[in-house]
Design a protein around this nucleic acid. Structure first.
Lengths: 243, 243
DNA sequence: CTGATAAGTCGCACAATACGACTATTGTGC
DNA sequence: GCACAATAGTCGTATTGTGCGACTTATCAG
């Protein structure tokens, strides 16, 4: 790729880099986890060998907009093509990337806790799921990705209190108990069963499939996301346990 | 400015433009208003003469990060230097700017309803306040600014229900009635006085100055933003009138 | 002194819900 | 076949928060 490829543009001042990063969260083994990829080991790259959020430069040739770019990167890493995806925000400064002024548009994706085929091997970077604790992951992250991850966690933990967001962390069909577990994992505290069920059912965010799943006990009714509820629903009040 | 100014960079693929736009809202004459600037009339510019949100290219020479850039643009237009400022999101696509692939980082600013000295005249663009209705302003906007403004209004109207956000629309010192008016203007409906006062006071978002303002009636206690509450507070419940 | 005006308070009724305790429905071991 | 374990799902109530109308308080004008 040469400078000849650069279309002459007006104004001819220096342009920042534009990137997209995706915070992909999922529940694995009862823990909230984030998907990280290992940066290439080449010394010409910043943060070689360091773990990072999946992401990279916007490709003006193939990305028609920012969201498409985020979806492309998600698809490349996980094979998942239609997750819950929302924009988290953008971070841009002179020093967040050693290569120069850069701005990243960060997306938050939630995917169900199924076995995602991590697209790895070949020249694709190594990828893996990392449990997130109170503040983030235990490994050191590249760039300002620690900040981005913190922001994502704050957003998710805040929204759990008053939205139907965790619906997107469970695989359809699911039982109300499955859904309650997802809430509890993200909230980090138990939730009363009766109160939880009234809330969820009266908000019409899920609908019955009519099917039941049996275990060694009474079979549980199976639900799916309510049709026409691709977006998350807002509860009028937060989950607030009695003191 | 010539191509020589362009620092050679690796990778040498085409970079999107990076801009920052600011949605500046204020209450004027009891109406929610947005600040717009007129685009230059030169034919070499996109959307000549059209009204637009204040904003423009990130200047990698003087802007250390995106927020500084937003603050700079706000200062240039209004003279206000420390408003309530939050990031709204980013919009980027191949076709939102006729000059090429561009991504804009949009900030939302709330400023008190004082007489802002609109910095205008000379070669500075014409600027003015426009009342926003249900969906936006009555004039046609440049670029995708209609979308950006809609998003800003949706954010504000949603947050009014459960946060202390309108605190930043009133000039200190203010009475509780002043604050209630701000809520009512953004909400578009009346609020019960007693309920409003309990909520606001128990949330500790304002504190008394000890001063009083007299009119032809009983003097009202004057308040200011509570110290240590630069950010907005979240109420546990939404304003919800009885049906 | 009286009335107008707006600030600020009080108390009740109502609605939502957190929660523990209850019932219901299945599988399993004896 | 019966007791029991395990989990699903419901019920009733105590408690909390708050919406709202009506009240009291404080000031000014005439």
């Amino acid at each position: 790729m040469t400078a000849a490829k650069l279309k002459p543009r007006e104004p001819a001042f220096e342009l920042p880099y534009t990137t997209v990063d995706v915070v992909i969260l999922s529940i694995r083994d009862g823990k909230l986890c984030v998907l990280l990829v290992k940066r290439p080991d080449s010394k010409s790259e910043p943060f070689p060998g360091r773990w990072a959020l999946p992401g990279g430069f916007v490709d003006v040739e193939c990305d028609k907009d920012l969201e498409s770019c985020a979806i492309r990167k998600l698809k490349e890493k996980t094979g998942v093509s239609s997750p819950y995806l929302e924009q988290l925000g953008s971070w841009g400064s002179a020093d967040r990337d050693p290569r120069g002024w850069s701005a990243t548009h960060v997306y938050l994706a939630l995917i169900p806790s199924i076995d995602v085929e991590l697209v790895s091997g070949g020249n694709a970077p190594e990828a893996g799921w990392f449990e997130v604790g109170e503040t983030g992951v235990s490994v050191k992250l590249a760039f300002d990705h620690k900040t981005l991850l913190s922001a994502a966690l704050a957003r998710v933990r805040s929204k759990v209190e008053y939205t139907s967001l965790p619906v997107h962390l469970v695989q359809e069909p699911f039982t109300l108990t499955d859904l309650q577990r997802a809430y509890e994992i993200v909230l980090g505290r138990p939730v009363n069963k009766a109160a939880f069920r009234t809330r969820v059912l009266s908000a019409n965010i899920v609908e019955s499939t009519g099917e039941f799943r049996g275990g060694q006990a009474r079979p549980a009714e199976l639900f799916r996301h309510a049709r026409g509820h691709d977006e998350i629903a807002y509860f009028p009040r937060t989950f607030s346990p009695r003191s």
